[in-house]
Design a protein around this nucleic acid. Structure first.
Lengths: 194, 194, 194, 194
DNA sequence: ATTTAAACGAGACGGTACGTCGCGTCTTTGT
DNA sequence: ACAAAGACGCGACGTACCGTCTCGTTTAAAT
């Protein structure tokens, strides 16, 4: 069973990390500063966390306020609302900068990536997945929809636009995107695929 | 007219950067190493490039082999082929690692981000945009499709899945994705939107 | 009567110290390593020994094989043999390195120095002092010889040459040194001091 | 040809080292503190000096005031005066502590030992050697005296007594020692060795 | 053909953070 | 109850690059 590190230092470190993350961002976060701020030796940080990435992931996930996802039964409406939440989160400089900034590390370090997915990604995805799966059961989405791919397209579009392509994005974009994903870009055909 | 930096060193620096990028990746790329490898003083590098990000972008864009996009007239087929190419590029460790690794810097440095988009992104996007726009003209895609959003969804899904969600992705995923984007996830309705 | 620390750990610590001293030397000796090697907690070591110097002194003195000094009655011969033994000990890398290495600590810590003298130095000096004192009684050395100074000159010359001046020294040097100390460097004068 | 490092930093480092040596001693001297005190980056120190030992040796030798050795022609008197100087230097806490403290390092690091001998030892020895050699030429010392051994015995006795045996030593001891080395401990014999 | 100014290679410089090691003290755990 | 195990705050280690800054030296344009 995992030893629940001496509670004192653990908490101090998490708090220091959160504070520094929002003050200076991920790139300028240093383990040295975390330790100093937490009133803790560097080795104590290194003893429990293998890298600043792990530190940041734990700090983010321990302080997160359980994001709420609407679940009214109307897929379109629920998805739009979820996407709007995502856009808000990615464009508010706090989180919106941290996660892309961590990507360089995620790409290099598979263990870190797994920690990221387990602690930050999957919990949030599960919420949206629920909405999608119920919609499938209700016949509002086609039975053969690949839920995972659908989620990737949904979140990926927002993420990519925000971070990579840099095109302007507003909460209004949420409608467009959801329409695209639900109705497709091709004109409706009389009886399915030709 | 601006003197185009002394050809000698410029080329040597670009070559050294490319070589190091593929040998050690973006994160471990250092300007010191580039200068040393190019047989050039550090200040010569700094004179012409403001950051290692700029260096990498120029190195990547100067050596790129003009990606070819099929343009057969069949949107679905052309898009699938383009997405397959994208998947191949992002999962081959070379380029697939470099671009995500640069994101931390892109997010912090708007000028760098602009350089990235101008040199690497827009040229490639333009090719696919052409395909999409013609499809619109031919009536194969709906007239009100937002081309930019469509591209972001298309590329973003692949990018996000590869780098962030980490779900398995193969060239076969290209079909699924294109189907989703063209036909939508909702079941076809008899006469358009209710 | 003083409880002789729990025999088990005491012995294990002494053995670990001796082993490490001969493997890595005094400078690289650490209390952490001693404790680990002895299968003992660090605090157990600290409970009984105040410093690594004390540890080393005890380890050296507990394992020493009672150096034998010739005592044939011929001062010159006995001294030469004693000096040869000293040279051998100081130039064999094991002990020869440990004692000079401890000097930094001896100079800083008077209690440690006293422990060093009591446990390692005086026992050995006493043996040679015996030889010298008998020689004085027999008239082979002058009555006003300061035994302590004589011993310091004798051992100091060897020690200093070995460790500080670094001049080559062999067992043959023993003869030269003893001759110098017994006969002096000045030419013999007809009737004693003028 | 040796590059005479950028004079600025070189001097600042030497001064900081000297100051710290006399304030905290050799054992507590840290390169970090030297750099800080000199207003210099650590790497600048490491660039020019391989170890704190080298730093200390250079600092000591660069600031030394050319010790004066009496050379009156009377060997006994000159030697006594030289030994008195030596005693004074070794018992004044400044130098007296530094050199023994360095010995642990000298013993481990032959290059450092050589630097020590070249910069600190040989210059001083040369002065006394001159006195001894002239005495030999004048017939005041026997022709077959090994000058090096004589010096080692002379200095070694003082050094050893001060640092190792810890016996009390005063400037008066100088007379005793010189008498011992010049006249020997054995009673004068009528006509040389029997 | 000579001058002149820039760009150049080399690399020292003051810094910052790295990740590691051992200190000596203090706490927990298990027997 | 004691001792092993080892976490803790601390401080220094020696290394790697950062971005800036002299240094002479090419090198090619303008005289």
């Amino acid at each position: 069973m995992r030893r629940p590190h001496h509670a004192r230092s653990h908490e101090a470190i998490m708090e220091a990390t959160s504070a520094l993350l929002s003050e200076v961002g991920y790139a300028a976060l240093t383990i040295e500063a975390v330790a100093a701020r937490a009133g803790v030796g560097k080795s104590t940080v290194y003893r429990w966390w293998p890298s600043k990435g792990a530190l940041a992931i734990d700090a983010l996930s321990s302080g997160q306020p359980a994001p709420v996802i609407d679940d009214t039964g109307d897929v379109r409406r629920d998805l739009v609302s979820a996407v709007q939440g995502l856009i808000a989160r990615l464009t508010s400089s706090a989180e919106g900068t941290i996660i892309p900034a961590m990507m360089a590390d995620l790409v290099r370090d598979p263990e870190l990536a797994e920690r990221f997915r387990a602690r930050l990604l999957r919990p949030r995805r599960a919420l949206v997945a629920t909405v999608v799966q119920r919609a499938i059961r209700h016949g509002d989405l086609m039975a053969d929809v690949d839920v995972t791919l659908f989620l990737d397209a949904c979140v990926g579009a927002v993420f990519y636009r925000t971070v990579v392509s840099g095109e302007p994005i507003t909460e209004a974009s949420a409608d467009q995107l959801v329409d695209l994903l639900l109705d497709g870009a091709a004109p409706p055909r009389p009886h399915g695929h030709p």
